[in-house]
Design a protein around this nucleic acid. Structure first.
Lengths: 231, 231
DNA sequence: CGCCGTTTTGAGGGTTCTCAAACGGGGTGG
DNA sequence: CCACCCCGTTTGAGAACCCTCAAAACGGCG
């Protein structure tokens, strides 16, 4: 097995304050693995055995209800830690993670977590900053779900994805991973039918362009208008 | 000013592993204060200058939307830390806190946070456990808001409050702080009218009893039934 | 080329919101 | 001590929004 290159981790928030030799140590303890689109990395409620760092691809964090409906709690972009249950003293994962696109991720056994915290300056700090950001994002989502109409929620969801994982193209900004109407409805608590109708309407208005499993936002500003007020 | 008694902190999760002298140190650094019902402890977006421990009363954590609607993110019970922005490397509070009942709270300047983490065994661990629990609770709320009908959300909200802060009475279990229909609607993303109708219906069915600013759940089991499935 | 998963579009109905008005109880001030 | 006033609550009617059910078109992959 070839050694992982140190450049993979250099500059990423949790490791930004570390020197090369320390990064080497960390990499030597990591297990790299590939996950095909749609495959599960871990399941909700499962024993939290490892924590992960996404190198490439996109991860969907999914929560399932007792009645079988599922909602997408979060998307993880390359360079981010995920499955960090140990950071919160949990011994099971609170949600499932699946690959939204083909992914490469490193992972470490949870027993190393405390070592990392103790040994590597800035690792704890940066990690808890991430937790804080996700917590803030979740609060925003709660507020959105509680107060906004469906149209505004869908617009907000698109904007969030564009901001976090957008990729510029000549047409506009493209969401960088495959996404279906059903996926969007799972993020916003609505139905794929309503999402389809909204996207069709927006396409007519020149705000977005979409094909199968693929969305390009041509006018982020226009979507932002929709989020603000119904008027 | 009389010294605070050490028994205030003994046994509380963040301090459970500490010895008396350490608790003494912590108490001597704390500023105690009383907050009248309805008064603000801190505001959303404000500079995070202090972190708090609630000794008595109840705190509502509130997020306000650009359009002025507000939703209640969380309730804090006695013995819990709140305003712990520093734990997540934030320099502003992500939400406002107001006293839902008359409250007594201790507080410390944020610059002591890192000292506490470094100096007191278990403080970090227990605090992050709390963060983890709140994060899990928020995920559950997101799922509820996204998938459940209004009736189920209101039932779930009542049950959550009963579980976290319930007080047994001869009639049933009483929510331990003053709460209006409007408050409940702010927690569930609905209107006070709908909440009023639901409570009236449930009272007729013998599930709850309510007076002004006051709710007693007489049949938690019955409410749990409502949460599960609409059928 | 055929199948399956995704998307589109229509019609109808139900839940919940909005608007409106009146009631009740508790606290405050006279 | 009583009366008034304010805040919280109740209830009704109508409408809007979105979901459910249904069916067909589309496009990629084997």
């Amino acid at each position: 097995m070839s050694k992982l290159d140190e450049s993979l981790l250099i500059g990423l928030p949790p490791f930004s304050r570390l020197e090369r030799p320390q990064i080497r140590e960390i990499l030597d303890l990591a297990v790299p693995r590939r996950y095909d689109t749609g495959s599960a990395i871990f399941s909700e409620g499962a024993e939290a055995e490892r924590f992960y760092l996404l190198l490439d691809g996109f991860i969907r964090v999914i929560r399932t209800t007792p009645t079988g409906e599922q909602i997408i709690a979060l998307h993880i972009a390359p360079g981010q830690l995920f499955g960090i249950a140990p950071a919160l003293q949990r011994d099971t994962y609170p949600a499932a993670a699946m690959a939204a696109a083909d992914c490469i991720a490193l992972s470490w056994p949870v027993r190393l977590w405390n070592d990392f915290i103790a040994k590597y300056d800035g690792f704890a700090t940066e990690t808890y900053r991430t937790v804080g950001e996700r917590l803030g994002e979740m609060q925003t989502r709660i507020v959105d779900l509680a107060t906004k109409a469906v149209e505004q929620r869908v617009a907000a969801a698109l904007l969030r994805m564009v901001n976090q994982t957008g990729r510029k193209t000549e047409e506009g900004i493209e969401i960088a991973f495959p996404i279906t109407r059903q996926n969007i409805s799972d993020m916003t608590g609505t139905t794929l039918h309503t999402v389809s109708r909204l996207l069709s309407a927006w396409e007519k208005d020149g705000l977005v362009k979409s094909t199968r499993k693929h969305v390009v936002v041509t006018s982020p500003h226009g979507l932002m208008m929709l989020c603000g007020a119904t008027d």
